[in-house]
Computed example of a mutant assay.
Amino acid sequence: MERIIFTSLLLTAVVSSSAGALRQYHFVNQQKSWTEAQKYCREKHTDLVTINDMQEQNDTKQAIERVNSNAERVWIGLKSTNTWIWSRDPAFYSGGDLRYKNWENSQPKGNGDCVFMNNEGKWNDRNCSFTKYFICYNDSSKGIIPVLQQKNWTDAQKYCRENHTDLVSVRNDTENEQIKHIIKQNITSSNEAWIGLHRLWVWSDSSSSTFTHWLTGEPNENNDRDICTSMGIKDHQGLWTDEPCTRDCFFVCYDDNMVLVRENKTWAEALRHCRNNGMDLVSVDSEQMQRWVKMTIMKANVSTHVWLGLRHSCTVGIWFWVNGQTVCYDQWTPDYDKDLNECEKTGRSGAIRTSDNRWISRPETDRYNFICSK
Rank of each mutant, 00 (worst) to 15 (best):
I4K: 14
F6A: 12
F6I: 15
T7I: 07
L10H: 06
T12G: 03
V14C: 13
L22N: 15
F27E: 14
Q30G: 00
K32M: 09
S33G: 09
K39V: 12
D47H: 04
D47G: 05
T50K: 00
T50M: 01
D53H: 13
M54R: 13
Q55Y: 07
E56G: 01
T60K: 03
A63H: 02
I64L: 05
E65V: 01
E65Q: 05
V74C: 00
S80D: 00
T83S: 06
T83N: 08
I85H: 11
G95N: 11
D97M: 09
R99S: 15
W103D: 10
G112W: 05
D113I: 12
D113C: 03
D113P: 00
E120S: 14
R126F: 12
C128W: 06
F130H: 03
T131D: 12
T131V: 03
C136Q: 03
K142L: 08
Q149T: 05
Q149C: 00
T154Q: 13
D155T: 06
R161D: 08
Q178K: 14
K184T: 10
I187C: 07
S189A: 04
S189C: 02
A193R: 01
G196K: 01
L197D: 02
W201G: 11
W203R: 06
S209A: 11
T212V: 11
W214H: 03
L215Q: 09
T216A: 06
G217E: 08
G217Y: 02
R225E: 09
I227H: 04
K234I: 00
D235S: 06
L239F: 12
E243D: 10
C253R: 00
D255T: 14
N257I: 02
M258Q: 13
V261C: 06
E263I: 01
N264C: 07
N264W: 12
T266Q: 13
R272W: 10
N276R: 11
V284E: 05
D285Q: 13
Q290W: 13
R291V: 02
T296N: 08
T296H: 04
A300W: 02
A300K: 10
H305V: 09
W307D: 09
L310C: 01
S313T: 06
C314V: 15
V316M: 08
F320Q: 11
W321Q: 05
V327W: 10
V327Q: 07
C328F: 15
Q331C: 07
Q331M: 15
Q331V: 14
G347V: 07
G350H: 07
A351P: 01
P363A: 01
S373N: 14
K374H: 14
